[in-house]
Simulated scan of single mutants.
Amino acid sequence: MKETHLDHVVLWVNDPLASVEFYEKTVGLTGERVAEFAEGKVPFPSVRVSARSLFDLAPLTMAGSMNAIPGAEGTAGHPVNHVCLAMDRAAFEALHGRLRESGVPVSPYSHNSFGARGAAPRSFYFRDPDGNIIEARHYDE
């Protein structure tokens, strides 16, 4: 059976370039199509979560056009509860440190939270500049 994986999540943002900067510098992800967005050639930039998944950083100004998708009327611009990033322990600890150094509030650690790979020893939550809630977690390898 072929594996199904998460391709992308659309996060609504006020300033896509500022969001790219946050996700690159603070979270440690890599921007995609940033120059093309700045030049007006593509409608939004993205940040790469893994080799197979992205966060699309869609400007809220696009929300109205999303209502044209069959079955999606009225859903554009609504936030999700949170998105979870899983990483190894070293990357988890480095992210926690970068967030704190950048003055981004982080939640206390949660322990043994259930996720796609079972119970994660530790996780925490933070908000991006647009209020999207991101959970970070690591699993024992």
Rank of each mutant, 00 (worst) to 15 (best):
Met62Val: 02
Asp140Met: 08
Ala76Tyr: 03
Ser123Arg: 08
His138Leu: 06
Arg89Cys: 01
Gly28Glu: 06
Arg98Tyr: 02
Asp140Leu: 13
Ser50Arg: 03
Ala35Pro: 09
Ala91His: 09
His96Gln: 13
Asn112Glu: 15
Arg52Thr: 15
Arg127Thr: 11
Ser123Lys: 04
Ala63Phe: 04
Gly64His: 01
Gly74Leu: 01
Leu95Gly: 11
Glu24Met: 09
Leu60Tyr: 02
Glu39Gly: 13
Asn14Gln: 13
Ser65Asn: 12
Val34His: 04
Met1Asn: 12
Ala120Asn: 15
Glu101Gly: 11
Leu95Ala: 11
Arg117Leu: 10
Ser123His: 10
Tyr23Trp: 04
Met1Ala: 14
Met62Ile: 02
His111Pro: 10
Ala68Ser: 10
His78Asp: 03
Glu24Asn: 12
Asn132Tyr: 05
Thr30Arg: 15
Leu57Pro: 01
Leu6Thr: 03
Ala63Arg: 10
Val10Asn: 13
Gly97Cys: 09
Val20Phe: 02
Ala86Arg: 01
Gly115Lys: 01
Val47Leu: 05
Pro129Asn: 12
Glu141Asp: 13
Arg122Ala: 13
Glu39His: 12
Ser53Arg: 07
Leu17His: 07
Met62Tyr: 09
Val10Tyr: 03
Ala18Gln: 14
Leu17Thr: 13
Gly103Arg: 03
Ala38Leu: 05
Leu60Ile: 05
Ala86Asp: 13
Tyr139Met: 03
Glu3Cys: 12
Gly71Pro: 06
Ala136Cys: 10
Pro79Ile: 00
Ser110His: 15
Val34Lys: 03
Leu29Gly: 10
His96Leu: 10
Val106Cys: 11
Ala76Ser: 06
Ser110Met: 12
Gly71Ile: 02
Val10Thr: 14
Ala38Tyr: 04
Val13Asn: 07
His111Met: 05
Gly74Lys: 01
Glu73Val: 06
Asp140Gly: 15
Ala18Ile: 07
Ser65Ile: 01
Arg98Leu: 01
Met1Phe: 07
Val47Gly: 10
Pro70Leu: 04
Ser46Leu: 14
Trp12Pro: 13
Ala58Thr: 10
Arg89Met: 01
Thr30Lys: 15
Gly31Ile: 06
Cys84Gly: 14
Ala63Leu: 02
Phe92Pro: 06
Val9Pro: 08
Asp128Thr: 13
His111Trp: 00
Pro45Lys: 08
Val13Ala: 06
Val42Lys: 11
Val83Gly: 08
Ser113Ala: 15
Thr30Gln: 14
Ala90Lys: 11
Arg98Cys: 07
Thr26Cys: 13
Asp7Glu: 12
Val106Tyr: 06
Asn132Lys: 09
Lys25Ser: 12
Met1Tyr: 02
Ser50Val: 00
Gly131Asp: 03
Glu73Ile: 03
Leu29Val: 01
Arg127Ser: 15
Glu32Asp: 14
Gly64Thr: 00
Pro16Tyr: 02
